[in-house]
Design a protein around this nucleic acid. Structure first.
Lengths: 155, 155
DNA sequence: CTGCCTGCAAACTCTTTGCACGAAT
DNA sequence: ATTCGTGCAAAGAGTTTGCAGGCAG
């Protein structure tokens, strides 16, 4: 999905519920699609402000659900306190996240088997699967050899 | 792993770092292993207080890392705000959690087929896999038919 | 007497919400 | 006018931490 497709999808989503395409929402949209990695709400705010410095934290948090709701963004929770977001590629719900234990950096890899895993497992319980996510915790090379990950963000 | 093994493991862990086996820690330990489902810090506190009413919230939060650190408890974050815990079975790092969308109840199923995938995927990135988790969001039968899950905890 | 352990309350982090003003239709 | 959108600041939820006193070795 190109950024233009995403934009169209987003605007259609907003229009469909009588919501407006404001400067702030647009700035947040652009900021989101300018990211090169998974990003947090905080990073998004910072980046959106470079485009339009009137953007507030509240608006970022109010816009994120609109973007995930229109399926142009995917939310990824690796259980580290803050949530991560990522532009949603072409229906790639079949993705595994490999997370470095030390730096919390997220690598995505396609996992075409996941859906089958999910259904198999859910059906055993008589539940209807809705979505599934495979998260692998791992240690990057640098962390394993030096005991410290070069991309470390925390503490 | 039996509860006695767990206790031994826990005490060894504490002893190994000059920490003491106090009444409170023991009460929290017992409370944890008396649970029948995944439990939260809050539930654990409540339950531990029935054993020793001097247990405080702070001590629960300080003891949880000791128990996960000694590998007698596993932490499960389903991205719902609060973390869940579960007595760790025999080294089952290959586990799938099926979470009901409505009531957040967690069902665990061993998923041995996941293992090869995690390794494959991590090696592609040069990372060493440590553990992996498949989380499936699903709807239970009651929720699907009545629109409301009988075990609903939230809102 | 040194150092671990505790409860209490305050602090913290990330996110959500109430409110009043401003803007679009 | 009416409805939507915004920033600000306060509120929330879950978790962590500083502190002073208590207890063990």
């Amino acid at each position: 999905m190109s950024i233009d497709d995403a934009r169209e999808k987003f605007q259609a989503y907003l229009a469909g519920r009588g919501l407006r395409v404001t400067e702030q929402r647009l700035a947040i949209f652009k900021a989101a699609f300018a990211q090169k990695e998974h990003f947090t709400a905080d990073v998004l705010l910072e980046c959106a402000r470079k485009i339009d410095d009137s953007v507030s934290r509240a608006t970022v948090y109010r816009t994120l659900p609109l973007m995930t709701g229109s399926h142009i963004l995917r939310e990824v929770d690796i259980g580290s306190g803050e949530k991560f977001y990522l532009p949603a590629g072409t229906g790639n719900t079949q993705v595994a996240q490999v997370v470095c234990e030390d730096c919390d950096r997220i690598f995505e890899i396609s996992a075409p088997f996941m859906e089958w895993y999910g259904s198999t497992v859910s059906l055993k319980l008589g539940l209807k699967p809705v979505s599934q996510r495979l998260q692998v915790s791992a240690q990057c090379i640098a962390y394993r050899s030096s005991g410290r990950c070069p991309n470390r963000r925390k503490s």
